[in-house]
Design a protein around this nucleic acid. Structure first.
Lengths: 191, 191
DNA sequence: GTTGGATGTCAACGGTTGTTTGCCTACAGT
DNA sequence: ACTGTAGGCAAACAACCGTTGACATCCAAC
């Protein structure tokens, strides 16, 4: 199957729609992000969105293609992997609003929730497996609770004490916790 | 101001509406939970919802009145407060769908997000203050990240590794983490 | 028994949504 | 220069939303 033909004149429009959709989904969630508003942001007619993406669902799928870009855990000392992961996640959340689009939409839109599950099962779980062969899925799940909890309270709910934290402070607090989940045991305190 | 008159015949209807609204808001979030669907669940006409609650916003406010029911932290030994809090939260999430209604709605509805901030500022922060006078708001915020992260991944996103955990296992993993946030310091590992 | 307010139903309004259809324009291949 | 096709726009569709007002019905107080 050929996915890349010769560049077409409409590629720029398609890209503009995708970008506008990402912003709207990130800011408003799936239901409040209307095709009309997305089209207006992209400077074109709503029907163009349908022509190029078929439906709102498929537009969302195209706009919410997310890559965690996790670092290779084998490159860092085992006792620092928690801090490295924490630093990576916090930096990743700030630089890309795709996760926000995914998070805001996943709460009410089943397909978005499924995509979120795929991201963590397909990207986080393998990385955890490389550092902790003992019950890796469970550890990956626990890491997800803490990491998504920060994203939720900081960027979506905007709890004042959490938004007030500096990135360094978050990393300093979260590092030992993720280390606990990655290399600790159920009954141990933080390592 | 008198808030409680003689019992009226409509009190049962009002209560039925509130219960149906709580369920719908918990399952579908604010926008997808329609007044028509709520009224159908309660077995009455949609216009009754407007008569008794005025608007959808005020119905939500009435249905999402949430109490964390936190235990008094002064009643438990200082080194066990993390585990006690963890056990309480996990049990609290299971028994009451009001938090789910609040969480699912807060992601897209600003008023619901504000209510969520009030709950944690007004109920969690004071409890934390009693056990940790040093930077209590910050610690309360950190506890919120972990606790809401579990609620999000377990009950909303339904990440398989998290839903698979038993309540005891969650408490065992979360206890040291909350203890870290409540009584630890930024650079310490073990509390 | 009559009256008056509380309780409830029915139908409709104005607005917004995702999606479809028809038509016009502009450009690339011949 | 001509033509076929891709790019783009405007209008409309059917469905659904929150909300409103007019009208029926019940029950309690006089």
């Amino acid at each position: 199957m050929q996915t890349e033909g010769r560049p077409r004149r409409s590629d720029a429009t398609k890209e503009a729609i995708r970008n506008a959709a990402r912003e709207r989904f990130a800011k408003d969630g799936y239901e409040r992000a209307t095709i009309r508003a997305i089209a207006a942001d992209a400077g074109i007619d709503p029907s163009m969105v349908m022509r190029y993406f078929g439906s709102k669902d498929r537009l969302f799928a195209a706009a919410a293609d997310f890559d965690l870009r996790l670092p290779d855990p084998l490159g860092v000392p085992r006792e620092e992997v928690g801090r490295v992961f924490a630093a990576h996640f916090v930096a990743r959340w700030d630089g890309d609003e795709t996760l926000m689009a995914l998070l805001r939409s996943a709460v009410t839109h089943p397909a978005a929730a499924e995509r979120m599950r795929e991201v963590f099962a397909g990207q986080l779980a393998p990385a955890v497996l490389a550092v902790a062969p003992d019950r890796p899925e469970q550890r990956a799940g626990l890491v997800a609770t803490q990491v998504l909890g920060v994203a939720l309270t900081r960027y979506v709910l905007r709890l004042p004490p959490v938004t007030a934290l500096e990135r360094d402070e978050i990393v300093a607090w979260l590092g030992p916790v993720l280390q606990h989940y990655l290399t600790g045991s159920e009954n141990s305190a933080t390592p």
